[in-house]
Simulated scan of single mutants.
Amino acid sequence: MSLAVKAVGVRKSFGRLEVLKGLDLEVENGEVLCILGPSGSGKSTFLRCINHLEVPDNGYVWVDGAIMGYELHGNVLQELSIRHLRAQQSQLGMVFQHFNLFAHRTVLGNVIEGPMVVRGLRRAAAEARAMELLEQVGMAGKASSYPSQLSGGQKQRVAIARALAMEPRVMLFDEPTSALDPELVGEVLEVMRNLARGGTTMIVVTHEIGFAREVADRVVVMIDGEIREMGAPGQVLSNPSDSRVRTFLSRVLS
């Protein structure tokens, strides 16, 4: 299979704190990869480096064969213009922990914004596609509602539809259920399960061990800015070789 994402030697520091310590990772098209690890291990920072919301201090990320944030001129890498970077980033759908919906726009308005502004889609076409996606995530009946009128689970499902509206090559999820009340987690995970069944390439930072075990093709465990374990869910979650991973999993699974 061809690679959707390739990261090589990705490092990132904030001041004296080294958050990512030279990460290498490849994700194939159609693969679901779940990233686990304790808080502060660099998972979200790595996700933000993939879509160039954070610029790595060293190393590079390729998406669909193109290096994120740069283009090659002869043998010299030059930074992309903001316009070209935004076009590149639109290949990556990002679902955040706290939804990041536009409060002043309806559900439908949130979903059509990107396709109309970034991709130049006409309103009728954008609305037709948006309604298909809202139906897919079970939110078509709330198209005229505002975010303040929705539950957390409903907001997150709208956020997923909004990301999908840009027809991304890869969906990135940054702990999409961690801000939700426990009874609302299931409805968001079910939408994500359906995306996985449909062959969507997904990189999911999550604390939901059961979801990772059930849905992921591979699981990565990050600790202190390093990938300490990577492999099939059954192997990583049931019989990890790294002692620190065993300690982490024993805490979250107990």
Rank of each mutant, 00 (worst) to 15 (best):
H98L: 05
A130Q: 13
E18W: 08
E208C: 01
T45C: 08
Q136K: 15
A179P: 06
R169A: 15
Q97Y: 13
R119P: 05
H73M: 04
S250K: 14
D181G: 00
K43V: 01
E175D: 11
E79C: 02
S41P: 14
P176K: 09
E187S: 06
V191I: 07
R105L: 02
Y60N: 13
M139Q: 09
V185L: 00
G65C: 12
V205H: 02
L53R: 07
P38Y: 10
Q136A: 14
F102H: 11
R218Y: 03
F211E: 03
E214L: 04
L92S: 11
Q149A: 11
G93T: 00
S145Q: 14
G40D: 10
W62V: 04
G225N: 09
N239V: 08
Y70V: 15
G199D: 04
D57W: 12
K142R: 14
M116D: 10
G120H: 06
I203C: 05
M171E: 02
P56I: 03
V188A: 08
G114H: 11
L134T: 09
G40E: 09
L17G: 05
E127D: 11
E113R: 08
G109Q: 01
E226D: 10
G210M: 05
M1Q: 12
L184A: 01
A7D: 08
I203A: 02
H98K: 05
